[in-house]
């Protein structure tokens, strides 16, 4: 036996445990960052509520339009869109925070430690998911007294919370990829209009069934439509396998794609160092 064998190669089990604790530490940091800077977070909680209130007052009568899906009131319809909108707002903030880490050199300092590279990323995304789930819960709780009722009950509400978390992770993957690619928080903030376009050309604010022409076709293929409609079905229709699947699988599928993209960007940033 030579001493070479004694080099600190960790057993798979221990390295897995280490990986988990590093990831947890990273996600804890990103959640704390949001709690400590309420000015960054509050807009993503207030604005969607403002627009929900606005829509409910302006379009209250629209629910009786011929092609409008059957809902009790406009707020029931708007809830899912409000959640997704809030999560999109929040994801930009998360991505910008990662870019700020890169700008300020914190990211490079992390890389000089034996922290697993991927746990830096996954930790951040897990933090985003926790915040996204919180947002979903927050919007439901705030809008309940204003007449929102969730047809799918508590189980449905739990699925919606999970959907918020998964969506935050999926969109967070894109903004993280952008942060890793550009290293500029300004560029990440600049992606905001893109998310807004994705949101508007979907059924987030109004049902697809009432749209027409090319606009309708875009909304039909826009994944955001399906994401929103899964959660919306749970609110306005009830607990069905179809709604649950849409609410969870669509963001999960987007997430697989976006996180793969983010990991790839991470490695190309590491390779460029």
């Amino acid at each position: 036996m030579t001493t070479i064998a004694a080099t600190p190669s960790l057993s798979p089990a221990r390295s897995k445990g280490l990986w988990m604790s590093q990831t947890l530490a990273m996600s804890k940091r990103s959640v704390l960052a949001m709690v400590r800077q309420p000015a960054l977070v509050i807009p993503s909680l207030i604005f969607p509520l403002f627009f929900a209130a606005l829509g409910s007052s302006s379009f209250g009568r629209a629910v009786r339009l011929p092609n409008f899906p059957k809902v009790d009131n406009f707020l029931d319809f708007a809830l899912a869109g409000t959640i997704v909108q809030g999560v999109l707002f929040g994801s930009v903030t998360g991505g910008a925070a990662l870019a700020t880490d890169i700008e300020q050199g914190f990211f490079d300092r992390l890389l000089t430690t034996p922290t697993s590279r991927v746990s830096i990323l996954v930790g951040r995304l897990a933090g985003a998911a926790i915040f996204g789930a919180f947002q979903a819960l927050f919007f439901m709780v705030v809008l309940l007294p204003f007449g929102v009722s969730i047809k799918a009950g508590v189980a449905g509400a739990i699925v919606i919370v999970l959907c918020g978390g998964l969506t935050a992770m999926a969109i967070g993957g894109f903004t993280a990829a952008m942060a890793l690619k550009t290293g500029s928080s300004e560029a990440v903030q600049g992606s905001f209009p893109l998310l807004f376009i994705a949101l508007f050309f979907s059924s987030a604010f109004f049902p697809r069934q009432t749209m027409q022409g090319a606009y309708r076709r875009i909304a039909d293929i826009n994944p955001v439509s399906h994401l929103v409609e899964g959660a919306r079905g749970l609110v306005t229709d009830g607990f069905t396998a179809g709604h649950v699947a849409a609410a969870l699988l669509v963001p999960a599928a987007i997430g697989v794609f976006s996180i793969a993209l983010a990991v790839r960007t991470l490695y190309s940033r590491l390779a460029a160092r």
């Binding site: 508007f200 050309f201 109004f206 009432t210 606009y215």
Partner: peptide, 18 residues
């Protein structure tokens, strides 16, 4: 420009409200 297109597309049906 975006707002014109997006709002009139998304809320296409509201003009049918009595």
């Amino acid at each position: 420009i975006f707002q014109t297109i997006a709002f009139s597309g998304t809320f296409f049906a509201i003009t049918k409200i009595p």
